[in-house]
Amino acid sequence: MRLPPANPDHACARHGLALHAFVHEAGHAVIAAHHGISFDSVSVARVLGEPDPAFGGTLAGGLDMGRAVREWVPESPARALEVLAAGMAAEDALLGHHLRRGFDGDIAVWRLGTGLTDGLMESENLSLLSTALGEPIGGVVTRSRALVENKLEQVVTVAAAIHASPSWRLDHAEVLSVL
Rank of each mutant, 00 (worst) to 15 (best):
P4C: 05
N150I: 00
G56Q: 08
R100E: 08
V109T: 13
H98I: 08
S76T: 12
M121E: 06
A29H: 07
P51V: 14
G115A: 09
P4I: 06
G138Q: 02
A33H: 04
A132Y: 01
A160W: 05
R143I: 08
H28W: 05
G134K: 10
V44H: 11
V158H: 07
L152E: 06
R111L: 01
P136H: 10
R14D: 14
A6N: 07
H35W: 13
T117S: 07
H35M: 05
A13W: 02
G102F: 14
T117I: 10
R14S: 10
G119C: 02
E149S: 14
G115R: 08
V140Q: 03
E153Q: 13
A68W: 09
V42C: 04
H163L: 02
A164Y: 03
E153A: 11
G66C: 12
D92E: 15
P136C: 11
S38I: 10
E25L: 12
A45H: 07
C12Y: 00
R79W: 03
G61P: 12
A45Y: 03
E71Y: 01
A29S: 06
R101G: 09
P8A: 02
A173K: 10
L59H: 05
A132G: 13
L59F: 12
I162L: 13
V42A: 11
G113P: 00
A26W: 11
P53E: 14
D9T: 06
R2C: 01
L94P: 01
G16N: 06
P51D: 14
A18L: 13
A78Y: 02
P53L: 12
R67Q: 14
A85W: 13
L48P: 01
N150S: 06
E122V: 08
A21F: 03
A159L: 11
